[in-house]
């Protein structure tokens, strides 16, 4: 329970807010540096970190019931399945057997 102490939750909100701003700055700085493939990894890594901070603290999932947390996690799991399995097809198509008509 974070909200028993209003001063403490206010401090947490401001800390998360500052972390998100720093993350935004870091996103731009990292993008302007040539890291090869790592550019995408870093960009997504920072974005996921920011999203997790928003979900846990601004959206109060840190203090919610497990059912709510599981529902939120389930949504993102299904998104990962959607993108992941789609890309397995696009990246791997033709790698094992030739694609008919090509």
């Amino acid at each position: 329970m974070a909200h028993h102490d209003p001063k403490r939750s206010l401090l947490i909100y401001v800390a998360v807010f500052l972390a998100l701003l720093i993350g935004t700055g870091a996103t731009v700085v990292v993008a302007k540096t040539d890291l090869g493939v790592l550019n995408d990894v870093a960009a997504l890594g920072i974005a996921v970190t920011k999203a997790v901070l928003v979900i846990l603290f601004f959206m109060h999932v840190r203090y919610s019931t497990r059912l709510t947390a599981l529902t939120a996690l389930g949504g993102f799991l299904w998104l990962a399945i959607l993108i992941g399995i789609t890309m397995i097809d696009y990246v791997g198509r033709g790698a094992i057997m030739p694609v008919p008509g090509k």
């Binding site: 709510t68 949504g75 998104l79 959607l82 789609t86």
Partner: peptide
Amino acid sequence: ESATLGMWLFLVTEIMFFGGLFTAYVV
């Protein structure tokens, strides 16, 4: 808790709604 859970279920449909576009972007 019921209101929060219901809202999150709606947000899950929103994740999938935007998710289709993010998938198109990745492809």
